[in-house]
């Protein structure tokens, strides 16, 4: 419940503050968002499995973001930034799908 409230607060804050993305962060923000979504779904799955631990969630959330951004950063330095960010998005997308599938199985047995 509090998590949902936090999400709403974040969205509202984003709408009200209308922040502009710093140029330096522009390539990394979308990847970071996808990584965070992956961590969020992973946490939801762990919760339904009864394995949820806030410390693990915090670490996985932050490390997901950092590692994703780092990969894209390295890719940019190597000149394959767009390809690597595509790769990261694909991998995270697959993980999100498998997590959602697991959650679905837990909730609906289907």
């Amino acid at each position: 419940m509090i998590a949902l409230i936090g999400l709403v607060i974040g969205v509202v804050a984003g709408l009200i503050l209308e922040p502009s993305v710093p140029v330096v962060l522009q390539p990394y923000l979308p990847i970071a968002v996808v990584a965070a979504l992956d961590a969020l779904f992973g946490a939801l799955r762990a919760l339904l499995d009864g394995l949820f631990d806030e410390r693990v969630f915090l670490v996985s959330f932050l490390s997901n973001i950092i590692v994703a951004a780092l990969i894209v950063f390295i890719g940019d330095q190597l000149g394959v930034g767009s390809q690597l960010s595509t790769a990261v998005v694909v991998v995270l997308g697959i993980r999100i799908f498998s997590n959602v599938a697991s959650i679905r199985r837990q909730l609906f047995r289907a």
Binding site: I2, A3, L7, P19, V33, L40, F52
Partner: peptide
Amino acid sequence: AQAIVAVLCALLGFAVVTQVR
């Protein structure tokens, strides 16, 4: 736990809105 999750979710929502915008 709830506090940490709330903070991270707020961060995520903020980031999503910013990026979409």
